[in-house]
Design a binder for these strands. Structure first.
Lengths: 337, 337
DNA sequence: CGTAGGTGCTGAACCGGATAAGTACCGAGA
DNA sequence: TCTCGGTACTTATCCGGTTCAGCACCTACG
């Protein structure tokens, strides 16, 4: 019941191990007749290459790593990661690459995981997500010499290959749309301020509002949870100059904000317009359904994986600017009453 | 810049490779002084064991596999899998095991992945989820001889080690609670009928309702999406004998159902009580917040991982009945008007 | 007819560890 | 003094592949 090896094939075919290796790898050095015979035997006895043995010869590990550094309680909150992973997977599995996944508590642990994976020859590369401002992981990973693709803006990616979307354009489109509807007081409920994409969106939001000569355009930072989203909304809606539109950084906060507004007897969209970043079933299920910024997240993951595989293959992987999020209007936005 | 090997350590320490191997693995055969010297050198030059080389000697792959067979569009829908994975991870990473993840389209592809992983020596075992009635994967995986833990009821797990929760008890608790509130017409919006846990819940629901002498207790099957949940709810609420309480098989359908009820000008909970299986931020965010069946999903995953590691270690892993889901009452349930 | 070049294969080394078998040395006991 | 047993190593082999050097054989060509 031992797993068959090329030695078994060689014995049955009456040739040497070397010939079998050439035959199985489509390399020259064996006649077509012998190759066919060897392949038939390999197939018959159910031979599979032992990746450990292959890896030992300096070959690929045929796996890439993804260490997610999020407190467990936020992981289930957003569908983002599952969608991202399924997109990465789609690309990887087409090339028979596996995804090594580990959930870690902090960035130090994350780097430890990368160091171990790379040091043990377990992965050929990795994808870095949730970039921070001046992220210490970037120089550390550069020093490791491991092929890495970064999901995030080039400005934060150092010499690593970035895959990103133009969040600024999405912010601009959203604000301009709200202004066109007649809104003048627009607020933004943002995510974690230390994330670089939060900073980018914040800046774009400020710039666009200023450019359009809008009144105060407050930004409130949160941790992406429904609770903080609700709290932020409550604070905004209780202020004397309450906004007539709020743009939320994820779906869960938008829905929480919607509930808060309705509790406060405000009509959405008449008294308050709501926009959510990233669509989800949740956004379509609530009443009114939410106007959202839609991204093709699986495609985003697939592109990152594709760039990473190119990098691993030694092809120079160029930065990739993905499609910007597009505004999908639904019932939660309207001209202010 | 080559990765250091034990040969490098041996050269620097002036001993043989064998001695280094003994020292690094805490085995007898070297003096404490030599061992300390070798460890110091290993540490200094940043040596890490090459798992491929270790695996070649029949050692463990130090990874377990999880192939998720769900259409990509359902993956982001439920937080279940991310929570499960984070629980599995917690247990695995404590033992420096990695999780190999692959999303596949169907069960055939899933078995192909397991066969490949096992054949290539890439994993030491796997976790099987989403068991079907008469699931063909069970005998196939038994034949592979790979250590496997099944998330699901023992009745469907064959000779594989099951980790499960008593869904029947949870169904009973829920129905009895609703009956105690005064409900007599209770409906269930269930998930995919071919899943074995759906069958178990269906049966328990029927049994409990019959046992309590309730009127018609309809069950509607869906694919877990909000759309089908909404459709099922609409159908139930439009029937002449409309239920005064509905128990949904997941959060997204419960929320969709809630919206449908509110659209139909029914007051929740006065006209309709709503219960959701599995808590999520979503359930707490909607108005009224939903009464839910709470499971500790990360713990569930952790237990499965722990059983699997025991199995891999050759310890006879016994079936584990996890804690049954508990009812957490919130604003969506009340006596019928 | 001698040889240059290509084909089709063999044998052996190699990757980085683990490990069984062998050896040199030392102290203790008969 | 000789043997015995343990300690502290070394040497050699193995795991399952890849790959390189070498070799026999055939064909083509000057």
């Amino acid at each position: 019941m031992r797993r068959p090896t090329i030695a078994d094939i060689a014995r049955q075919a009456g040739v040497s191990k070397g010939a079998v290796s050439y035959a199985l790898n489509g390399q020259p050095g064996v006649s077509e007749a012998t190759r066919a015979r060897i392949l038939a035997i390999a197939n018959e006895i159910g031979w599979r290459p032992n990746i450990a043995a292959r890896a030992l010869n300096g070959a690929r590990a045929h796996a890439v790593g993804l260490a997610l550094c999020r407190p467990a309680r936020f992981l289930g909150v957003e569908p983002f990661f599952m969608e991202l992973i399924s997109g990465i997977e789609a690309e990887l599995s087409a090339r028979s690459y596996a995804l090594l996944l580990q959930v870690v508590g902090d960035h130090e642990a994350e780097m430890g995981v990368y160091r171990r994976w790379w040091g043990e020859g377990r992965v050929d590369g990795a994808i870095l997500v949730d970039l921070h401002l001046d992220d210490p992981r970037v120089p550390q990973v550069e020093e490791l010499g491991m092929p890495v693709v970064v999901l995030g803006h080039p400005s934060a990616a150092g010499s690593l290959v970035p895959v990103w979307a133009d969040d600024s354009a999405a912010v601009r489109e959203t604000v301009e749309y709200l202004v066109a509807l007649g809104h003048r007081r627009i607020a933004r409920v943002a995510g974690l301020p230390r994330l670089s994409h939060t900073a980018i969106r914040d800046r774009a939001f400020g710039d666009v509002c200023a450019g359009l000569g809008l009144d105060a355009c407050p930004i409130v930072h949160t941790d992406y949870t429904g609770e903080e989203g609700a709290r932020a909304t409550r604070r905004l809606l209780s202020s004397p100059e309450r906004p007539t539109a709020i743009v939320f950084d994820n779906d869960i906060m938008a829905v929480a904000g919607l509930s808060v507004a309705q509790e406060m007897r405000l009509d959405v969209p008449a008294d308050l317009s709501v926009v959510a970043w990233d669509d989800s079933p949740l956004c379509q299920v609530v009443r009114p359904p939410l106007t959202v910024l839609t991204r093709d997240i699986p495609a985003y993951g697939a592109h990152a994986a594709q760039r990473l595989l190119a990098l691993i293959d030694g092809v120079e992987a160029r930065p990739l600017e993905d499609e910007a999020p597009r505004l999908t209007t639904r019932g939660s936005t309207a001209p202010p009453a």
